[in-house]
Design a protein around this nucleic acid. Sequence first.
DNA 1: TGAATATATGAACAAGTATTCATATGTTAC
DNA 2: GTAACATATGAATACTTGTTCATATATTCA
Lengths: 96, 96
Amino acid sequence: MKLNELKAIKLAELFSALSDASRIRLISLLLEGEKSVRALADGLGMTESAVSHQLRGLRQMHLVRTRKSGRQVFYSLDDDHVSRLFTLGLDHVQHG
Amino acid sequence: MKLNELKAIKLAELFSALSDASRIRLISLLLEGEKSVRALADGLGMTESAVSHQLRGLRQMHLVRTRKSGRQVFYSLDDDHVSRLFTLGLDHVQHG
DNA sequence: TGAATATATGAACAAGTATTCATATGTTAC
DNA sequence: GTAACATATGAATACTTGTTCATATATTCA
């Protein structure tokens, strides 16, 4: 596979973004469709601040994108890589 | 997707196992086929101890399996989920 | 304008993690 | 048996990370 160090780091960063139960649950909510920060915080029983901090990381990894409407910011999954990684991972956890 | 907390944790643990550049490079070496601890350590420029510690985590997540032969232990990828996650992640990093 | 709402951000602390070093276990050769 | 080798493990340390709290920015409504 001949993976150079930079790509290894990038890949590790991608998986790091998925390596926390709170973020996994955020993503599982976003699989239902776009949601505001408050809706996500309510759905997970987290503070808006904590959710916002986590979303920042997901944004930086291009796993989610935002749409602003008034004073709300709606988050949604950025592309289908995310849901495919999610599904594949879940598959491994359930059977593997 | 209705993900309960336990599954979220399991999934996060799976991705945690992939969330470190050293482990990513270990896996990229194992994509070439099974290798001994020493071969992996040499290939990555890490100590055998560090590699052994990391392999332990990958073993616990069922991402790699072992075959013992004499005093050597050969590691290989456990199932194709691993390489599929790896490839899908790489795809996201390179294009996304 | 000012108050209320929604989100973002910085600092600080607690909890988790990767590596190193020393040591232990298990295997082969003599 | 002992010596040498391959791997594993425990403890310690340095580094990273998630949450909380306080505060900042931005938008709407009166």
